[in-house]
């Protein structure tokens, strides 16, 4: 258990360090790269929690999806890829928003109360259970389908906006 704690501490420190660098980097491209590092550390923590599927999702959605989108947005923004492009100096309002968001989340998490057991056994067929729950009418079928409809709307909307007129 002790070795696991040490590894967790190291990963957590790396993650927080990367997160701090996201905010303090002067070049926006560096900030995007540090963000990827931070995402990767989260994936490692999921691996430590013996949940490889969540780790894979973290890599696939956050790094393969969100980080790629971020980088593409930087690439197509005028001057965004320029090595000397600096981030916008609107620090105070951003700080207020993020600190208040942090307070809300921290308060919510402390309200939850965590079980004290050292660790619950992982279900043998965890992945199959997850998949069944998503498409089972008694499970989360309706939210799942609503999300897919929403994604469809987003897709059509972006096509409409990007259409040549």
């Amino acid at each position: 258990m002790f070795a696991g704690q040490v590894v967790f501490l190291i990963i957590a420190c790396l993650m927080l360090g990367a997160a701090v660098r996201v905010v303090t980097s002067r070049r926006i491209f560096h900030a995007a790269l540090w963000l990827i590092g931070s995402f990767f550390c989260v994936a490692v923590i999921y691996m430590l929690l013996e949940s490889p599927f969540m780790a894979g999702i973290q890599l696939f959605i956050y790094i393969g999806g969100i980080a790629v989108l971020t980088v593409i947005a930087i690439m197509v923004t005028k001057g965004g890829m320029h090595p000397d492009s600096h981030t916008l100096g609107n620090g105070w309002s951003a700080a207020i928003v993020s600190i208040s968001l942090f307070i809300v989340m921290a308060w919510t998490i402390t309200q939850l109360g965590f079980p004290n057991e050292p660790g619950m056994p992982v279900a043998e067929e965890g992945l199959a259970l997850l998949g069944a729950a998503l498409v089972d009418p008694g499970g989360y079928l309706v939210p799942f389908e609503v999300v897919s409809v929403m994604l469809m709307v987003v897709l059509i909307g972006s096509l409409y906006l990007g259409r040549e007129r």
Partner: peptide, 20 residues
């Protein structure tokens, strides 16, 4: 891994960043 095929896809998602 019981997510082997998905692991391959997830790791490959890192590849474009080296090029960028």
């Amino acid at each position: 891994l019981d997510i082997g095929a998905f692991y391959v896809v997830a790791i490959s998602a890192l590849a474009p960043f080296s090029m960028i």
